[in-house]
């Protein structure tokens, strides 16, 4: 049941700097832990996060095993036109999730 929480302002003025906050549900298993019987718990992490605005990439991050469960990623960007932010998380074991949010620029 992967789920994401996205916080994008609904409205902004042309040229405003806006903050975008994203929270993605994921266990971020490091691959360095062992079970009681000594078997390695296989790595299962998100490896990449991308944000596109109207198709153009505005933010990208690579994620690594040291990042805590349920990664919370926030960043700033400027907006010059109304449009749609698309978010994509890609990870181990074929993990792939998307979310989107719209903004109106006045």
């Amino acid at each position: 049941m992967p789920s994401a929480l996205i916080n994008v302002p609904k409205k902004a003025k042309r040229g405003d700097i806006i903050e975008i906050k994203t929270l993605m549900s994921h266990i971020m298993e490091t691959g360095y832990r062992h079970t009681a019987s000594g078997d390695v718990v296989p790595r299962d992490i998100i490896t990449s996060f991308t944000c596109r605005f109207n198709g153009t990439e505005v933010f990208r991050a690579d994620l690594f095993p040291a990042i805590a469960a349920n990664p919370f990623i926030t960043f700033f960007t400027t907006v010059t036109e109304s449009g749609k932010f698309e978010f994509e998380w890609i990870g181990d074991k074929g993990f792939s999730e998307t979310a989107q949010a719209s903004i109106t620029v006045e």
Partner: peptide, 10 residues
């Protein structure tokens, strides 16, 4: 305090 930052909300 902020529901979009609170991982419990997931």
């Amino acid at each position: 305090d902020e529901d979009t930052a609170n991982p419990g909300m997931l």
